[in-house]
């Protein structure tokens, strides 16, 4: 890679590192799944890399990056228009986590998260952003307005409408079938799992290494 391009990556990584994990989390909250959220985040990072020369003040990088994230999110929403025509089951497949001895609370948390992710997916992009940024990221109305490039009354309206739609969704769907799919079953259309259930799948452990050095 050319030296200039490599320098640009180095600079971008240095600017992004302080809030990388938070930005990943925000991306995931805007999307229907962690995988989709990671895709959105990578698109945003790539866009930031391509447009880094337009950043005037490095002190404003964070808000600049988040604004880019929201733009990419809206672009992806427009691109995925046709997915809305899919039957519900195809658009929101019930992904079953492999059985886990310690399912309990964790499984319920996962299903809660998926349920609200499904509900958020039914909102227009700007309402979804407003709800995620205000309710989950705990930004102020003024901060949300600044990131969305909208007025404060507009953000308040988006929040009100978004919450109203979410409440309606919960009233209509209530206890959706997918919420209780944590303990087995298969994902419609997914590859059949030929696994022997050892109850060993759990996502939270970091991989141990025999040696202390890393590549």
């Amino acid at each position: 890679m050319e030296p200039l391009a490599e320098n640009r990556w180095t600079k971008l990584i240095a600017l992004l590192e302080p809030f990388h994990e938070q930005a990943v989390a925000t991306s995931r909250r805007l999307c229907r799944s962690s995988a989709e959220g990671d895709d959105l985040y990578q698109e945003t990072v790539l866009r930031a890399y391509e447009k880094l020369h337009t950043l005037r003040e490095e002190s404003r990088f964070r808000s600049w990056f988040y604004a880019t994230l929201l733009n990419r999110h809206r672009t992806r929403m427009r691109r995925s228009f046709w997915r809305r025509l899919l039957p519900w089951e195809q658009a929101f497949p019930n992904g079953a986590e492999p059985a886990d001895r310690n399912s309990g609370d964790r499984a319920e948390e996962i299903m809660r998260a998926r349920r609200v992710a499904r509900a958020l997916a039914t909102l227009p992009a700007v309402q979804r952003e407003a709800v995620v940024l205000f309710e989950i990221e705990c930004l102020s109305i003024e901060s949300v307005a600044s990131l969305q490039g909208a007025s404060i009354p507009a953000v308040k309206s988006r929040l009100a409408r978004g919450r109203s739609k979410l409440r309606s969704w919960y009233e209509r769907h209530g206890d959706v079938p997918g919420v209780n799919a944590a303990r087995g079953g298969s994902t419609p259309g997914a590859r059949p799992a030929r696994a022997i259930d050892t109850g060993m799948m759990h996502e939270s452990l970091a991989i141990p290494v025999k040696e202390s050095s890393h590549g």
Binding site: A25, E109, I110, R112, A113
Partner: peptide, 10 residues
């Protein structure tokens, strides 16, 4: 559910 999404997404 929003709280669960906040935790799971992180």
């Amino acid at each position: 559910d929003l709280r669960a999404l906040r935790d799971e997404s992180a």
